[in-house]
Design a protein around this nucleic acid. Structure first.
Length: 890
RNA sequence: GCGGGGGUGGCUGAGCCUGGCCAAAAGCGGCGGACUUAAGAUCCGCUCCUGUAGAGGUUCGAGGGUUCGAAUCCCUUCCCCCGCACCA
């Protein structure tokens, strides 16, 4: 047999063409409810990288597996084709974003095809085409109709280098750098378009609990991002400035409020800065919200505590953030760490008003106040020194105080902000609005959509601003001269509903076919990188909910199961161009073939874990495929000496047949769980078993051929080209991609017990041979326990009687064993709690006979497997269920 | 700080939810053997300690607990990674 690698290039291109010609990945519009398998569509940056390959290998393998299981499968692909890099690239290359993007798409589509990814390319979508972005505009108008669009001036993150607005999420790190170019981000006030995602904050938060197919980490990140907090708002009066509202989650601590603090950009701080030099100095120069130290300046004003009437000093402090709560807070240094630090620094009183609840608290006695001189006590407890509220527990006190303080009310705060979708860039969806001097901003009527992008103009600012002809239009309402909105949409708008477009990608009068979407959604299995845990996944959930409320979609969540795939690393480090440690998928495909790359990736680790790329591993995977190829081709070519097809099966044949069953039973479970690594190990082990079957025995053709056939099918989802080639070599009809998944006659528990029995018995023989120092065994007897012991074991497992022995003795055939039964009964009694089921005596006998050749081969001695009745008593006596007696003659 | 995930044999890493078949899968590395002129590849074993018949001992970050029985459940504690964070 040769160890030459098979010609992967020829094999792969041959089947890629055959699949395409036969449209095997096409999902017809009239299927009822296909299994929807989706990988996050890529930004067409130029070439596929290993992260893409891993992502799409996972979805492809799963899609193929589901298809073999008999499901209709929807497995589409598209392009997240708008975005800033295209503009930058166009400028660098003196071309335009459209041409550059489509070039990239062509390259990447070709790479995907060469990887053998089985997409329904008839459903391909490209977000930068008017046919797609028209529906972004249409949806914008629907959101607008539903009152979910707002235009307002907002302080935005502005990247001076990209000359664009960034979402909060696109600003990275404490240094606040642009996510694309690492330039420090500035702030600007601009009129911006917002989608009111906060209207859905409660549902987005609460529905996370039901997303049981999502990883906990992602669910938790979304909860944090939404950041809902229940508390109270309460008014403090500041002389000369009226009432100032503060939000607190700890209204129970209000008697301990010893100062009041305002954000540097709070309106009152601004007023004070105008008249007070110290405040001005602080607000304009000293305030450092990003620093670790809380800084502040005393204003000389006092605020009136609405409960106690006490006058407390007012500070302007940089640890107070204007976008948190109300931008003003009552500070309780005794019970808040940050307030404590500030009070210590400024010498403000620290007055404890909450004591830890005593262990034996009677619910009435007021405990002693805790010592808070060194650190705040931040837990809930019992109120002390709080007037009529003393002795209440924190929670009750909060409720009563909220009720009884004049003007106080319950309030819920969110960290989630409305989604600013305006971008001052060219390469995005034009926001479908016209600005009219008389009518203000007016939506472009649906019949005038899409508002298409004009030709690209190479300019430093926003090219749409420079497109004078395009900008000039008329007001849809009054017909007067008007100008177009020049902002484009954040590309996350595109990706918030693209999974719906695949359902009906060519539909001309709606974004998606509602009936079909209701049948086909949600996505059953979504796979992508963890970096989209918050933005893309949250926005998609938001869109889905709005479409459910406004457009009759029957689903409120887009993705049932989510897999966040791990990174492909090199020597423990993330691959990146800047580190120069990138492995090119292109090279791997050329050198080893797509099947090798796919198989290596999936068997290297569980899909959600990071793993190290290893050239050695790739080579070893490639050799495996070559061996498999040899094995199948050798058989097909008649090079394997087999027994006649009508020969009886001997024990080796039975063993191999059992192992084939075992592989099927285990691999199927593991594919279901997306633990490809385990499934593939099983398939690889099966190939190894078949090889040694060929080497050490004359295979039975039925058994051997079924083994090869099963191995090919188990590997088909991951190594589809070679599987297809070998499927044909075996003379099977049709495509393996359309073949049925193999079925097993044994369940997983049985095959695992069988394997364990065989493995334990083999180990025991080795132990004996070694420990007893047997040089050259002459004969090995393996004796399976008598049936009555299996019966006794079963009774013992089911029994809850105190006296097991008397229960056993009620069985006449056990009682008939006399002392032996009593002795075994005592053993069972002693291990009562630890007993577990085994195979039946007959099954054990069959399994051991089938495996006997392994022992024979290893020790070069005949092995006799027999039932207890046929063996000498002194040997048979030691046999127990799950543990045959072993007698070795020297 | 809060939240999430982890700490397992020389290394990587499964097992932990649903306690017992766990001295603990698999891979790598190492050792021995087969094949080969040789190397490579492949195949068969071994790889915590002790042991002349399948046994015993000590292990799963540390310490306690529950249980007939704990890598697995509970508590305390230390360390690592990820996300969020001067969030009122």
């Amino acid at each position: 047999m040769s160890q030459e690698a098979y010609d992967h290039t020829a094999v792969e291109s041959r089947w890629q063409e055959a699949w395409a010609d036969a449209s095997v990945y096409r999902t017809a519009d009239d299927v009822d409810d296909p299994t929807y398998v989706l990988g996050m569509y890529p930004y067409p940056s130029g070439k596929l990288h290993m992260g893409h390959v891993r992502n799409y290998t996972i979805t492809d393998a799963y899609a193929r597996y589901r298809r073999m299981r008999g499901d209709d499968v929807l497995h589409p692909m598209g392009w997240d084709a708008f975005g800033l890099p295209a503009e930058n690239a166009a400028k660098e290359r003196d071309t335009n974003p459209r041409d550059w993007t489509f070039d990239c798409i062509d390259t990447m589509r070709g790479q995907m095809k060469s990887m053998g990814f089985g997409y329904d390319w008839d459903r391909e979508i490209t977000t930068c085409t008017p046919e797609y972005y028209e529906w972004n505009q249409w949806l914008f108008s629907r959101f607008s109709d539903a009152g979910l669009v707002e235009r307002r001036e907002a302080e935005v993150n502005w990247c001076p280098s990209c000359e664009t607005v960034l979402a909060d999420e696109q600003v990275e790190g404490d240094a606040e750098l642009c996510w694309r170019c690492d330039t420090p981000v500035e702030t600007r006030d601009l009129d911006q378009w917002f989608l009111k995602i906060t209207e859905y904050a409660d549902e987005l938060l609460e529905a996370i609990d039901d997303l049981e197919g999502w990883p906990n980490s992602v669910r938790q990140m979304q909860r944090n991002w939404i950041g809902r907090q229940h508390g109270s708002e309460v008014d403090f009066r500041i002389e000369g400035h009226g009432s100032v509202r503060a939000f607190t989650t700890r209204l129970d601590t209000i008697h301990g409020a010893t100062f009041f603090a305002l954000a540097p950009d709070h309106p009152i701080s601004e007023e004070l800065a105008a008249e007070d030099d110290a405040v001005h100095e602080f607000v304009r120069h000293e305030a450092d919200p990003d620093g670790d130290e809380p800084n502040g300046v005393e204003t000389g004003l006092t605020a009136t505590n609405p409960v106690t009437g006490e006058e407390i000093p007012v500070f302007v402090a940089d640890f107070v953030l204007s976008d948190v709560g109300t931008g003003a807070l009552m500070a309780v240094p005794a019970h808040d760490e940050r307030d404590h630090a500030f009070a210590t620094k400024k010498g403000v009183e620290i007055r404890p008003v909450i004591a830890p609840e005593p262990d034996d608290w009677d619910g009435e006695t007021i405990p002693d106040a805790p010592d808070v001189s060194e650190a705040a006590f931040t837990d809930d407890g019992v109120l002390v020194d709080s007037g009529e509220y003393g002795g209440l527990d924190s929670e009750t006190a909060r409720e009563r105080l909220t009720e009884e303080i004049e003007g106080a009310e319950e309030s819920t705060q969110y960290q989630l902000r409305d989604w600013g979708i305006s971008r001052q860039r060219y390469w995005g969806t034009p926001i479908p609005v016209v600005h009219c001097d008389d009518c203000g901003p007016v939506s472009v009527p649906d019949e005038d959509l899409p508002v298409e992008l004009p030709e690209f103009i190479n300019t430093t600012g926003n090219p749409l601003d420079a497109a004078e002809e395009w900008k000039a239009t008329t007001c849809p309402d009054c017909g007067a001269a008007a100008t177009r909105e020049t902002d484009t949409m954040d590309t996350f708008v595109d990706s918030s509903w693209y999974f719906l477009r695949y359902v009906s990608p060519d539909l001309a009068d709606a974004p998606f076919d509602l009936d079909r979407a209701n049948d086909w959604m949600p996505v059953d299995q979504y796979v992508g990188g963890i970096e989209h845990a918050v933005m893309h996944l949250l926005y998609s959930r938001f869109f889905t909910k709005v479409l459910a409320d406004e457009e009759g979609l029957d689903h409120r969540e887009p993705f049932t199961n989510l897999l966040a795939q791990g990174m492909v690393q090199l020597d423990g480090e993330k691959m990146s161009k800047s580190k120069g440690n990138v492995v090119s998928p292109q090279r791997i495909v050329e050198e080893y073939g797509a099947d090798t790359a796919r198989l290596f990736m999936l068997q290297a680790a569980q899909p959600e874990r990071d793993f190290d790329w290893s050239e050695e591993g790739v080579k070893s995977t490639h050799r495996f495929l070559a061996r498999l190829s040899d094995l199948v081709e050798g058989y097909a070519a008649g090079d394997v000496a087999t027994v006649g097809r009508d020969a009886d099966r001997d024990t080796v044949d039975e063993y191999v047949a059992d192992e084939v069953d075992a592989a099927v039973a285990i691999a199927g479970d593991e594919y279901d769980d997306l633990t490809f690594n385990v499934a593939l190990r099983e398939a690889q082990d099966l190939v190894r078993t078949l090889r040694s079957y060929r080497e050490h025995a004359e295979p039975h053709p039925d058994v051997y051929e079924r083994g090869l056939d099963v191995a090919v099918r188990l590997l088909a989802p991951v190594a589809p080209h070679l599987a297809e080639e070998l499927w044909e070599t075996l003379g099977r009809d049709g495509f393996v991609v359309e073949a049925d998944w193999p079925s097993a006659t044994a369940d997983r528990e049985t095959v695992e017990r069988r394997r364990r029995l065989v493995a334990n018995t083999r180990e025991d023989v080795r132990d004996i041979v070694e420990v007893a120092g047997i040089e050259d065994p002459e004969r090995i007897d393996v004796v399976v326990a008598p049936d009555w012991k299996y019966d006794a074991l079963e009774i013992a497992i089911d029994s809850d009687a105190d006296n097991l022995i008397s229960e056993l003795m009620q069985e006449s055939h056990i009682r008939a064993q006399g002392d032996e039964a009593a002795s075994y009964g005592q053993d069972l009694q002693a291990e009562r709690e630890a007993l577990s089921g085994t195979l039946s005596g007959d099954e054990e006998y069959a399994a051991l006979r089938a495996a006997a050749w392994l022992i024979e081969r290893e020790f070069d001695a005949p092995v006799v497997v027999e039932r207890a009745n046929d063996a000498p008593d002194d040997v048979a006596r030691k046999a127990e269920p799950g543990r045959p007696a072993i007698d070795i003659a020297e």
